[in-house]
């Protein structure tokens, strides 16, 4: 069954039509990747799914409920959380305050359980719990952004470019944790420019080009597809370090 079903989504960003009729679905337990260059509309799609942007037309169904026109604060309550592009942690708040804000929609007696879960996934955050988020490294801030989204105990986790600005060794560690998160039962929709790493992680993928999906396939097939190879993998596969 589809957890998320997006049909013919059109979204304007200012005067520009950033998404020109996008359809996709995500099944329970999947990791689905969306690849695309800068300006393809990846972030617009994520912001629309979270309710920060309102589509001009099309529908977004989540667990059979129409959430197309719900505000962002309502969508979190339906079970979709996002780690946004550029991380957007609350820099002058502590790590702990950031995590607790992630659980803003949750009853107080359930927060500790999620906190334990997140701190087990990202033990680094445990050491930094009383540090101001803005003083941490990029990798640690990314862990916090993902951990903060998990605090909402989402059934669908949206990740917008978690590798952005991070050294390969750092984001490879984060990608390993994403695998663990998925194995714990969270469905993941992830937008990435780092095509190789994300396709190794994902089950399926879509390729977005100027507001339209041009390819959709299993991650394995996309990894070997000539179009993807040429456009996103920089030709022949490089040796990972």
């Amino acid at each position: 069954m589809s957890l998320l079903q997006v049909t013919d989504l059109r979204v304007n960003y200012g005067q520009i039509e950033a998404l020109k009729g996008v359809s996709l679905h995500v099944k329970i337990g999947e990791i689905v990747a969306i690849l695309g260059a800068n300006g393809a509309g990846k972030t617009t799609l994520m912001r629309t799914l979270s309710g920060l942007l309102t589509p001009r037309s099309g529908t977004i169904m989540f667990e059979g409920t129409d959430i197309t026109r719900l505000g962002a604060d309502k969508i979190v309550r339906h079970g979709i959380a996002q780690s946004p592009e550029g991380r957007r942690v609350f820099g002058t708040l502590t790590v702990m305050e950031n995590l607790r804000l992630g659980a803003f929609t949750r009853p107080a007696n359930e927060i500790q359980e999620s906190l334990d879960f997140v701190l087990d996934m990202f033990p680094r955050l445990r050491d930094r719990r009383s540090q101001l988020a803005g003083t941490m490294s990029g990798g640690e801030q990314q862990m916090l952004a993902i951990g903060r989204a998990l605090m909402a105990k989402p059934r669908l986790l949206l990740l917008d470019e978690p590798s952005l600005g991070l050294a390969p060794i750092i984001f490879q560690g984060i990608f390993r944790t994403l695998r663990e998160i998925a194995d714990s039962g969270v469905t993941i929709l992830i937008v990435e420019q780092n095509a190789r790493s994300v396709l190794k992680l994902a089950d399926r993928g879509y390729v977005l080009e100027v507001g339209r999906f041009v390819l959709e396939d299993t991650a394995k097939a996309l990894l070997t597809s000539p179009e993807v190879q040429a456009a996103y993998l920089g030709g022949a596969e490089k040796k990972p370090h």
Binding site: A72, V76, R77, P84, R88, L93, L101, T105
Partner: peptide, 19 residues
């Protein structure tokens, strides 16, 4: 804390479920 979060970044605050 929600007030402080909204003061830092309104969109990020919305993503937390803050109205």
């Amino acid at each position: 804390t929600a007030i402080r979060a909204a003061a830092i970044d309104q969109d990020a605050a919305r993503l937390m479920g803050i109205n």
